[in-house]
Nucleic acid binder design. Structure first.
Length: 454
RNA sequence: GUGGAUGUAGCUCAGCUGGUUAGAGCGCUGGAUUGUGGUUCCAGAGGUCGUGGGUUCAAGCCCCAUCUUCCACCCCA
C-alpha cells in the first residue's frame, strides 16, 4: 500500500475557500499600498547565502533554510572536513543558496543592484512567502507570507507617519481592532548608555521586551544572568515603571536619558511623529511602548509592532527604520523605513473572529442544470451571454440526476440555478431559481441577464 | 535547539485496571421523491487504531524509536 503523502512540517495547503479568504487579505493590503503610491516588485525565493547570513542576528542564521548545491555537492569537500563533523563549516562548502528569511534584506540587495534605475525615494511593496526553519506552533509557520511596504532613500519622518496611516487604513478595511506600538532604537540605546551599559544594548532590550510577558522580577533576573551590573539594573528600574499617556512617558524618559545625545535624538523623532499624528484621524490606538525592542538587528530608528486587540497571537505587523541596510551591499547613506504585514497571522485572527465577508468565497453566481444534449445547446449561448455581461456562470457538465446537480450547486454556494428543459425551450424561456429563497420564475432569455446583473 | 502533550472512520471525538466482532455524532452513498437542493424518514458503505519495533497467551490501551500536530521556552510575522 502506498504511504500517505504529506507535506513538510510547518507548511500548509490552501483550499479554495482558504484561498478566497487569503486573497481577500492580499487584495485589501494591495489596494491600500497602491492608494499610497507604492509600486510592486518581486525577488527570487532563493538568495545567495552571503546575502542572507549575518543580517538577522545569531538566531536568524540558524533559522535559514539552506539549499544543497546541485550536482556532486561533496566534490568540494575533502575527507578531513567530512569527518570533522563541523556542520557549520561544512555548510559553507556544500550550500551557497538559501530561502529568503524576510523581504527586507532581499529588497536592500535589489536596491543596491538597481540603484541606477530606481527613482528615489523609492516606494515599493512586495507580497511573497518567506521561510524560517523555526519550530512551528500557534501562528508560527515555516512558510508564510509577508506583505512589505518600504520607503527607501529618505530620512523624513513623514515616511514613518505614512506607514502608520497605512497600518491604520489596512486594519480599518479588514475590520480588525489593533494597537500600534511605537518605539525608537535610539531611545533604547540612550537607556543603555544612561545606565552605563551601552555595550549590552541587545541583551538589555531583549530582556525588557519581555516585561509585560514575564514581569519585572524575571526581567531583572535575566539581566543579572546576562551579566548586567547591579547598579545598572537599579538605574533601569524607573524606566521599567514608566506609565501615563504617550507624552507623559516621553517627558519622563527624556529626563532619565538626557545625557545621551543618541537618546535625545530618539526622543525628538518620536515627538515629531506624534506631532504629525496629532493632526490625523486614526482609528487604531497608538501607544509608545518603551519596552518594545524587536529582534532584527538592522533597525536603527523607529520600530513598530501591531497587535490584535481581540486575539492573542503575537504581532501581526512589524517594522522599523534601518539607516544602513544597503551599506552592507555597498551602497551607503541610504536610509529606509518599512513594515511587514503577516498575512497568515492576520488570517488566523480573522478566522477566529469570523469576520471574513460572506461573499469572499468566489464561485459561480449561476449554474445551468444539464438536462441533456439538446438542452446543452440551448444553454451554451445563454452562458456566453451571461459571461459577456460579467456574470460568473457555469453549466453542470453531465446530465446527472437533478438532485445531484442541485446538491452540487447548493454545496458550492451558487446563488442561482437556471432550469432550461424541454418545456422551457418550447416557450423560449428559462426557469430561474433562487437557491436562497427557493423562489422560481419563468422568464425570457433577455430578462435573465437583467435579473442576474444586479 | 530545550521541555511537555497529542495522533482511533472524510471531520469532531468516545473506547474501563490490557481480554471476543473498536463505537457515536456529523458528513458521504442509495432510496422515499425518475424536473428541484438546503428540512424529514429509511437503508448502506467506510477503520491493518500515525508509522516501525518490543513486552504479553492476548495490545487501540504498556515500553522504545520515529513522524505529525499542538503548547511552553528561545526567537519572531
Amino acid at each position: 500500500m502506498a504511504q500517505k503523502p504529506s507535506i513538510p512540517k510547518g507548511t500548509r495547503d490552501f483550499s479554495p475557500n482558504e484561498m478566497a479568504r487569503r486573497n481577500y487579505i492580499f487584495d485589501t493590503v494591495k489596494r491600500v499600498f497602491q492608494l499610497y503610491g507604492f509600486q510592486q516588485i518581486e525577488t527570487p525565493a532563493m538568495e545567495n547565502l552571503s546575502t542572507l547570513m549575518g543580517k538577522y542576528g545569531e538566531e536568524g542564521d540558524k533559522l535559514l533554510f539552506k539549499i544543497l548545491n546541485s550536482g556532486d555537492y561533496l566534490s568540494a569537500v575533502n575527507s578531513e572536513e567530512l569527518t570533522a563533523s563541523n556542520s557549520s563549516k561544512l555548510t559553507t562548502k556544500i550550500s551557497e543558496k538559501g530561502l529568503r528569511y524576510d523581504l527586507t534584506v532581499p529588497f536592500a540587495r535589489y536596491v543596491v543592484q538597481n540603484q541606477n534605475d530606481i527613482v528615489f525615494p523609492f516606494r515599493r511593496y512586495q507580497i511573497q512567502p518567506v521561510w524560517r526553519a523555526d519550530r512551528p506552533q500557534k501562528g508560527r509557520y515555516r512558510e508564510f507570507y509577508q506583505c512589505d511596504v518600504d520607503i527607501i532613500g529618505s530620512d523624513s519622518l513623514l515616511n514613518e507617519v505614512e506607514l502608520i496611516q497605512i497600518v491604520d487604513h489596512v486594519y480599518r478595511f479588514l475590520g480588525l481592532k489593533v494597537v500600534i506600538k511605537i518605539n525608537n532604537r535610539k531611545i533604547l540605546a540612550g537607556i543603555a548608555e544612561a545606565i552605563g551599559e551601552a555595550e549590552r544594548i541587545v541583551d538589555i532590550t531583549v530582556a525588557i521586551d519581555k516585561l509585560d510577558k514575564i514581569g519585572i522580577d524575571k526581567v531583572n533576573e535575566e539581566l543579572i544572568h546576562k551579566g548586567v551590573t547591579h547598579e545598572a539594573i537599579l538605574k533601569l528600574q524607573p524606566i521599567l515603571h514608566l506609565n501615563g499617556s504617550n507624552t507623559e512617558k516621553i517627558n519622563q524618559i527624556e529626563r532619565v536619558i538626557s545625557m545621551s545625545s543618541t537618546g535625545l535624538q530618539g526622543i525628538k523623532e518620536v515627538r515629531t511623529i506624534f506631532n504629525y499624528l496629532s493632526g490625523i484621524n486614526l482609528e487604531s490606538e497608538i501607544e509608545l511602548d518603551l519596552t518594545l525592542a524587536r529582534g532584527l538587528n538592522y533597525y536603527t530608528g523607529a520600530i513598530f509592532e501591531v497587535k490584535s486587540k481581540d486575539v492573542e497571537i503575537g504581532s501581526i505587523t512589524g517594522g522599523g527604520r534601518y539607516d544602513d541596510l544597503t551599506g552592507i551591499f555597498g551602497l551607503s547613506g541610504v536610509s529606509g523605513v518599512g513594515i511587514s504585514f503577516g498575512a497568515d497571522r492576520i488570517y488566523d485572527v480573522m478566522s477566529q473572529l469570523d469576520i471574513f465577508p460572506k461573499d469572499a468565497m468566489a464561485s459561480s453566481k449561476v449554474m445551468f442544470v444539464n438536462f441533456g444534449e439538446k438542452e446543452e445547446c440551448y444553454c451554451l449561448p445563454l452562458l456566453s451571454c451571461l459571461r459577456q455581461a460579467g456574470i460568473s456562470s457555469e453549466i453542470y457538465p453531465d446530465s446527472d440526476k437533478m438532485k445531484k446537480q442541485m446538491v452540487y450547486a447548493n454545496r458550492k454556494g451558487i446563488k442561482f440555478v437556471v432550469l432550461a428543459g424541454e418545456s422551457e425551450i418550447e416557450k423560449g424561456m428559462v426557469n430561474l431559481k433562487n437557491m436562497e429563497t427557493g423562489e422560481q420564475q419563468l422568464i425570457s432569455v433577455t430578462e435573465l441577464v437583467i435579473a442576474l446583473k444586479v
